[in-house]
Amino acid sequence: MVTADDIFNISSKKQFDKIALKVFRQQFDNNSVYSEFCLLLKKDKQNVKSVQDIPFLPIQFFKSHAVLSSEEPVQTTFTSSGTTGMVTSSHHVTDLSLYEQSFRQAFSQFYGNIEDYAILALLPSYLEREGSSLIYMVRDLIEGSCNPHSGFYLNNYNELIKKLIELDASGQNVLLIGVTYALLDLIEMQQFSLKNTIIMETGGMKGKRREIIREELHKLLCSGFGVSEIHSEYGMTELLSQAYSLGNGIFECPPWMDVLIRDTEDALTYIDYGKTGGINVIDLANLNSCAFIATQDLGKKYPNQSFEVLGRFDNSDIRGCNLMVM
């Protein structure tokens, strides 16, 4: 039985592959939705010998099925956002400690000690609904920062502007994490010249603005905030892990997460580095749901294992897509 310790202590590609295959066998045995899908593809524990052989469950299954690999009681259900009448995804989580360990450890890996930061969160469209995994994560980061200035902002932009300028001028390290349209709203109200602040966008216009490509978006945000790089977070309701970009839209995964790029014409075939295809995510923190998910995002992977997100197959609501198609 694979445990959290196995997952969060992965230190090599060889170890990752070994544990991924163990998780596949565990989920094949314990997840009826996933095993039925695998059998339809004529895949089972006998003929899956490598990570490339593992079937990836289409992300749409989270809209129509309870995707569970555990009989433990569900502690919470994260849901995706959507317009009225839209069928949303539900990710039933039986062990919230897996999510907490995943995002805390990943944040530490990419950004260092959380207590070194004041966390300012501008996430109105997420705050205004129930069941957001992003809000759960950011609330925990705010609490973990132990900084009295950390907090959420809904529509109180003037208060946020004042706080951001004061903290940055004082030399405090600040992380402003925001939904894309709200960050654009903010720089239309105030031009900044920030020296000690990281701007992290989570993607998403949420129907508030026209969709623009990432290069144009990041150019606007860099100019408006007076920073040289825009950071990004790639996560979604159906995952318990995030990849981070420290600039230029190039993402890196924590050691227990990886992406593979599938052929858009043949979902069971993988394509070479640098070519565009569908993003398959392995998230081993998804131990109790499904660790192998075929997303609706398009992207490229590079030889150093970083990747880029280049759009979507359609308009499905997947948080973290950082090139919004016109």
Rank of each mutant, 00 (worst) to 15 (best):
I279A: 09
G226V: 12
A243S: 12
C253G: 08
I59N: 03
Y270V: 09
T3R: 12
T84F: 00
R209T: 08
T295Y: 03
L96Y: 03
G235A: 03
E308N: 08
G311V: 05
G274C: 03
L323A: 09
M326T: 12
F62E: 02
L141D: 01
G235D: 06
K163E: 05
I282S: 01
L134F: 14
E130R: 13
L68M: 11
S170H: 11
Y153T: 14
Y273Q: 14
H231K: 14
H218C: 14
P124V: 12
I187S: 00
P254Y: 00
H231V: 13
I199L: 01
V48F: 01
V67L: 01
A20W: 12
D6C: 07
G204Y: 02
E201K: 09
E215F: 13
L122I: 10
L287N: 00
E233Y: 11
L260W: 12
F292T: 10
G131F: 06
G249K: 04
L176W: 00
P148D: 00
Y270N: 15
V309N: 05
E211H: 10
S170N: 05
L186A: 05
D185K: 11
G204R: 04
E71T: 14
F8D: 01
D297K: 02
Q296N: 15
L164C: 02
A291G: 09
D95L: 12
N113P: 10
T77I: 14
K300L: 06
A169Y: 08
I177N: 10
L240N: 09
Y181T: 08
I212N: 01
L68P: 06
T276S: 15
L41D: 11
L221E: 07
F313L: 14
T264S: 15
F103T: 08
V2R: 06
F313I: 08
I213P: 01
A106D: 09
A169R: 14
K195Q: 13
G299H: 14
E143W: 06
I7S: 05
R25I: 01
E115G: 03
S90N: 10
D17E: 15
R209W: 03
S102V: 12
W256H: 15
S245F: 13
L220G: 07
T276Q: 15
F307C: 01
A66R: 06
F110Y: 10
F8S: 04
F292N: 00
I142H: 06
A20L: 08
D17S: 13
L175E: 09
A4W: 05
T76L: 13
I230F: 07
I165E: 11
S69H: 07
M257I: 02
G249V: 00
V179N: 03
L287W: 04
E308Q: 15
T83W: 03
H91I: 03
A4L: 12
E143Y: 10
Y157P: 08
P148V: 02
F225H: 05
L68I: 09
P73M: 06
A66W: 04
R129G: 08
I19T: 07
A267T: 13
V48W: 05
S35T: 09
E128T: 14
I198E: 04
K49I: 01
D44Y: 07
L239C: 10
M189C: 11
A20T: 10
K219G: 05
